[in-house]
Design a binder for these strands. Structure first.
Lengths: 194, 194, 194, 194
DNA sequence: GTCTAAACGAGACGGTACGTCTAGTCTTTCT
DNA sequence: AGAAAGACTAGACGTACCGTCTCGTTTAGAC
């Protein structure tokens, strides 16, 4: 049995260097150049150190992207659902950019070949985000901006869907105006079906 | 200089065997097991033959998926936009399934590490599909099912977006009822914003 | 069963072109560049044609070298054994040269990986040559230049051996003076042991 | 820039396994079956490890043969030149055997397609052996067994030549009696010409 | 301030797949 | 029917990364 490593003795320098290297390599050269060996070289860290703390290249990327995302406040509540959703989706687009060497797109692609990673992504990134999103919808219901019987699943699909459709097919991420237009359509649809 | 191979002498047997093997391997074991060597073995074909006719594993997969998609009639026009879009999206979901070892998801993931492949996917699969989609919308406009000034970009994002959001985050592809609900919401939104 | 090809319909142009190409490629670039494909290209001949008439690349080379050797008179008999042997060995050295890209060395190397070829070389080139050599020795015995009981096997080894030792280890082929010196030593040895 | 590997960290187990596998494969199946992949498989070693420490398959074989040869004492000096040379040549024949799948013959054949290897063979195997041989001849001169003016080049050619002539043409390696007969002839020739 | 155990960098290891090359076979088209 | 052209199966080539495993060398916490 391998003894688990002692987190209290972990080198913060190495941890940060690995995450920075992962993001930088991904941004510079895309997913194809993102290898454990490349990250280790760039970070000045041994492969062993990476494997000690992360189970896979995707896990490194997830940590790096999570770090990135955690620096952005999510699902604020100003009382104006349309404005809040537009702001939120703009944040998401910013994190995802640039489209061609997006760390998030890379993470998603890695998820395709690593089901365990896909589960981690869902649990650590997507589900919390959905929870915040639904909380915001409930708030909107309380002030009557959307109907009491609005379908949250539909709302999730229609608010977030466009971004990922465009991301995976590289159709150009929506700009602020496009996001606002879509948000208005979705809210209009939710109200019309209420 | 490498002479280009002569397509008129191409072996149809080998071509079909490669595409079949690619799809089968992808369905059985997912993207991680989809290698050129694996395809060659399964197809009873030499690697050389694959490299002669396709530039990459992703290109094989694109051909295979395109073959698959071409056997499904797309964007029919019965006069009922909601019914037609629901039918169309159900077709797309069927092609994409099963989610965990979806050839389309694999293709999309490959596109992340191969920009040339991403461009091919866009040109050969996505753009023609969008053209058919817009043609269908124009037809709906002519019979007054959606407003004259409906935003086709919004419609594209909202109709197709949900599928890909769910696909990349493995949230479970929508079933027929879910698709119908979303189609109705989108059309309601288009009308409300008209 | 494959019908044997009909030699009467064989293209002399193709046959000559193949042998010439084999020798030329061997001389220019050494054995590593001597491939069936390379010969076919250089000769303007299809690979099929080569495989139709020769079982292997070594067989082509054997034919080519045999052609070469046949243009040199072997084991003449002027009555002076030492002079005749020196002349003969000089002929051999000339056929073998240049050492670095010697077709004969290439042929010998091919023989190592193809026992059937090795047998062909022995039967078609070596054994006839040995027969001629022994005939010459018998002639020398008749005129008393070497003892009646001289060991022909020893003579063969000592006359021909040096050339091949130097060839395989690239020690520099003997020049005319060196050959003459060795011939004299061998004959001296044969006489001394007689 | 490729960093050179660090010899102090080299795995002795891997080194020995590779050399053993190379010799075994060569002996069992001949040069045609001797591939880097085959050696790696047989040795339970990765191809990378072979390529890390040897530039080519021939270099592996050279190391293996050199190992083999180093376990045989060469050019001993009992005071009797004929006996010593016969013993030495018997050693050489033993190392070379079996003729049909001789590692030495394979090495020589490889040398034909790889001039760098041929140079290595000459420097690491042949030249040291020649030096030892000439030292033995000098010793024989000191005790008057061969003339002061004996031609060492002739001696080298006539002592060693027969073995290689027979090897490359697969004429059957000389047995102990044949070797002794030839040694005696050569010494007789050297004395007669002194 | 040692001492010591663990995390570190470096990198060799057994593997798998890559994309390329040549061998030898087979098929098509031309003469 | 033989020849030129060239696509085919087969498999070795040499390379890149994978994930594991030593090595010595820091380095941080316990003494």
């Amino acid at each position: 049995m391998n003894a688990a490593p002692d987190p209290s003795r972990r080198s913060e320098r190495a941890r940060v260097a690995v995450l920075d290297a992962a993001l930088a390599l991904c941004r510079e050269s895309g997913l194809a150049q993102l290898t454990i060996e490349g990250i280790a070289d760039r970070a000045g860290v041994s492969k062993k150190t990476i494997y000690r703390w992360w189970p896979s290249k995707g896990a490194v990327l997830l940590d790096a992207v999570a770090d990135l995302a955690s620096r952005t406040a999510l699902h604020g509540d100003t009382g104006d659902l349309a404005a809040d959703m537009a702001a939120q989706l703009n944040n998401v687009v910013e994190i995802i950019s640039p489209q061609d060497t997006s760390p998030v797109a890379a993470l998603v692609a890695e998820g395709q070949r690593d089901p365990a990673l896909a589960a981690s992504i869902r649990e650590q990134m997507i589900m919390p985000s959905i929870a915040g999103f639904e909380e915001r919808l409930r708030s909107a219901q309380r002030v009557g901006q959307i109907p009491e019987n609005a379908d949250f699943g539909v709302a999730l699909d229609l608010f977030y869907g466009p971004i990922y459709h465009r991301l995976v097919y590289r159709l150009g991420l929506p700009d602020e105006d496009e996001i606002r237009t879509r948000v208005d359509h979705v809210i209009a649809g939710l109200r019309a079906m209420g």
